[in-house]
Design a binder for these strands. Structure first.
Lengths: 146, 146
DNA sequence: CCTTGTTAGTTACAAAAACAACTAATATCC
DNA sequence: GGATATTAGTTGTTTTTGTAACTAACAAGG
């Protein structure tokens, strides 16, 4: 039906990347969804705060490349759940500093444990060298500095 | 603020995969979105039909792991745009065979051109060996047979 | 045949994302 | 100082997705 061509859909990188990302997200989702009723943006925010410490919504947004409306709503949810506290910056009263509460810290540590396990189980299918190359390439593609 | 730990968010594969996928999607999106007003699922369906020839919605769904409701809506849109025609299977009148119209074929070829270019530009940042490893790993992660 | 079960695809409704418009605080420049 | 522009974050509205329930056609066992 179709003349021969050097294009194959299953080799197209954006397609492959999306399929792989969807698949891996699905595997990890159940941890934060079932156990804490979180959305993807919520755990990303939680992880950023847990991983890097106190931050403003703005900083999380620019680091994780998440739109500010998504952050705003995620922070509202996390605040409802008493996982983060918001304190106004006294020098610039527009922005507020987000910090994990002890409960938020506990959730973060629990999820981090599962994340680490999940990550390890993925890597187990490949050699150490392959995984290193994958990470390096994905960071490059994602626009994250090494 | 946070005790040392061997977990770093920017190394977590589901996170990296999603970031890389989003970034690369964004780059390609403008072609099918601006030029043809398509959604992601629509171009995927179009590409499947262009790449593999006539298929049913079911087949596309299982190949691309897209839920049937998304396929259904994408096919409806593509049909409105006169990019695909639907013909009932006479032996099993539940399913219908989807085929690209000449207009659909033209759109596919045009987008395929851009896809190829885009893919090439991505690969240019890496060595041939790295790209081969990346594709192999992503196919594995996505659950696509080599 | 005729009940029961399965499958292809659609539709309806709820959840989430995208986008635009908004408020309130600060910065700039005259 | 005061008009104007920017910035941090929020809210409202529209699209898009996810999920469940549905229709219509077929299949199988009795």
């Amino acid at each position: 039906m179709n003349e021969k061509d050097d294009f194959a859909l299953q080799d197209f990188l954006p397609y492959l990347l999306n399929r792989a990302a969807e698949e891996s997200s699905l595997g990890f989702q159940k941890h934060y969804k079932n156990r804490y009723g979180m959305l993807r943006t919520e755990w990303r925010v939680l992880f950023h705060l847990g991983n890097y410490g106190q931050m403003t919504a703005k900083e999380i947004g620019s680091r994780a490349k998440i739109h500010k409306t998504k952050i705003s709503r995620a922070v509202a949810k996390l605040s409802e759940k008493r996982f983060v506290t918001r304190t106004r910056d006294e020098n610039d009263r527009r922005s507020e500093h987000l910090t994990l509460t002890p409960a938020g810290e506990a959730a973060y540590k629990d999820l981090r444990e599962h994340a680490l396990e999940f990550d390890t189980s993925i890597c187990a299918r490949f050699t150490t060298g392959e995984v290193a190359i994958l990470r390096y390439m994905l960071r490059n593609l994602a626009g994250i500095e090494p």
